[in-house]
Design a protein around this nucleic acid. Structure first.
Lengths: 351, 351
DNA sequence: GCACACTCTTGAAACGTGTCAAGAGAGTTG
DNA sequence: CAACTCTCTTGACACGTTTCAAGAGTGTGC
């Protein structure tokens, strides 16, 4: 009935024979209003189909009660789990979340950041691209609390939730080295996002420490690739095309999605995993266990990262300083079927 | 510098020695302002770090320029593609999208719908749950254009984008029947969402028509299951436990995710796909081709559904009536490796 | 019957912007 | 120089809420 969009608090007041102030009190401080009036007002609201005008409340309040979530790349299932964690926690705390997705496009990221500023969101959770400190800096200067996810930060006035990806890279590499592999490859763009960089650092660290401690020389190749399954497929083909002596016996991928592609290409070219090549992913996204060869991978607690970030933000918004301000999760090695001891191509040829 | 949250148009006006109206014109109608003043104002905006107050503009304008996208289930990769389509199209048209995700929870769906109403979004794209016509009805009555996705509607004052899932069910069943299967099973909850119901209807139609036209009797079992990979795994175990004579020779799943689970369980129990059992998915989500057995499935154009819905909405918002108001996409059979002719258990036992 | 306490209610002000009618200048024409 | 046109600029108002000081009403105690 009627057009709810045009019904205001004063229409309700008129119908219920009370003042605007009373209607407002019914909505925001019901205890201050006598039962009789409250019921009259509620009746009038129902009759008119009145809907609060969020913008007006917001204008009066000076800030909204919405929290922004800016995702780097919503197609990556890992980040969806982050979003799920954020949503579950904020909805439990009575906050609304506005999600947007930059799709690894730095321009869009800026646009959305501006939108969030203009919308005067109460707080912001960001899974950021790399070089965009300036945008974040500005919004922080405006007094909006920001939690950065997947990038370790420090400082009394900042908040962050991250994963120790150096340790993750180490886990992956040590697992392979422990199985006897001496020729490794890391698939992923070295110049890409910080987390990817860290994983490679971890792998290098493991390689270097093996050299010093056990006096075993490990060869490590870095195969650059975008962070998509398609790019993985290309790398897989490169690997398949190498002469067996030159080919690494084990591959660590920067993210599971990449490993998916590598796996697919290897199998297509007749190479068996793990017999001819061991493969380690990274993230443990839900599909990892359902692949043709369930993937050994490094698990990151995406959902918990989301809830943790949301909780920090909610605590800040309620006025208390969150404790701690920086959380770093430790990743975990999950061994499935894609890794094994290397075959010995010198003695027994794989056909 | 300073706190941008507290800088208003009048501070800018004071610094630039102009009136508020002129600042507003610089922001909204730059052509009405002389170059000299414009530059002074722009300078002042820069100096003060002024950020427009969205809520105030919104209040003045009466409606926001944000579009709401309410997703039924953002964990399903298919819906993520819908979101991607919506985002790409709306951002090309200069609209901002606010995404929220009900996670198949009808209470959350209502909450978000209320939030969108209160936020006076310019328009809404909804992938709805089933029984919640009332909420949508109210918001439509308020004059907010709504596009419903994945549910065919009719009527001059409505808009919808859907897929002919009856045809999709038929495609799947005819493919299997054509291969020679005479005992089929449909996995999915009959009482679930409309699209699932339609798929089953399509399967039944194909079965019935085969009976009338070719006089061939097809047996069809319906195995209820939630729409998750886990539920699929349970069904797969049930199937594996059946005596071979009782077991259907081919299975159609309501969605790919379910088929993933079924596949995994079957393989784990030593049944081969497609030799011992053919399997058809539904959706063609990106991981489908990377499974241990790449899945034959019914492709739905999720991304295009998103762009189409967004375009309809954008057209409506720009004042023109969209043409047409209801779009139904036809699904497509994608044959991969999970389907083949049935083995003949009566003559040759599977070992 | 007066003072006081207490509970509800009221009406106006303020939040920051966009709009619009009216006005100020500057230039042009007769 | 007056009359007119045209381009910019101005300042007040409205949008729909919440808040808050002040007022109205109702008991209660002496």
């Amino acid at each position: 009935m009627g057009s709810p969009g045009r019904v205001g608090i004063k229409d309700v007041a008129r119908l219920a024979h009370v003042s605007q102030g009373t209607v407002s009190n019914v909505l925001n401080h019901p205890d201050r209003v006598s039962q009789a009036r409250r019921e009259a007002v509620e009746q009038a609201i129902e009759t008119l189909g009145f809907v609060r005008h969020e913008a007006a409340r917001h204008l009066r309040a000076g800030h909204s009660s919405t929290v922004g979530l800016l995702l780097l790349d919503a197609w990556n299932p890992g980040f969806i789990d982050v979003a799920r964690g954020v949503e579950d926690m904020t909805s439990a705390r009575g906050l609304a979340v506005m999600i947007s997705n930059s799709g690894r496009d730095i321009e869009r990221e800026k646009t959305y950041l501006r939108l969030f500023s203009e919308g005067r969101v109460a707080g912001l959770i960001v899974v950021p691209h790399d070089e965009f400190a300036d945008g974040l800096h500005r919004i922080r200067a405006g007094g909006v609390p920001v939690v950065v996810v997947d990038r370790a930060e420090t400082g009394e006035h900042r908040m962050s939730v991250a994963v120790n990806d150096v340790a993750g890279g180490e886990l992956a590499a040590r697992h392979l080295i422990g199985l006897g592999h001496r020729h490794l490859a890391f698939v992923g763009d070295e110049g890409a996002a910080k987390p990817v960089h860290d994983r490679l650092t971890g792998v290098r660290k493991a390689v270097a420490e093996t050299r010093t401690e056990a006096n075993v020389e490990i060869r490590l190749d870095v195969l650059p690739a975008d962070l998509t399954a398609d790019a993985g497929r290309t790398v897989g083909e490169q690997l398949a095309a190498m002469p067996p002596g030159e080919r690494p016996t084990a591959v660590t991928a920067a993210i599971d999605l990449l490993a998916f592609g590598v796996l697919q290409a290897l199998l297509q070219h007749g190479l068996r995993v793990p017999e001819h090549m061991s493969l380690v992913g990274y993230d443990d996204i839900p599909f990892t266990r359902q692949l043709s060869v369930p993937l050994t991978t490094i698990r990151r607690p995406h959902y918990d990262m989301g809830t943790t970030a949301a909780e920090m933000l909610a605590t800040t918004l309620s006025g208390k300083p969150p404790q701690p301000r920086h959380v770093v999760f430790e990743p975990e090695l999950v061994v499935r079927d894609s890794t094994s001891r290397p075959s010995k191509p010198s003695r027994r040829k794989p056909r």
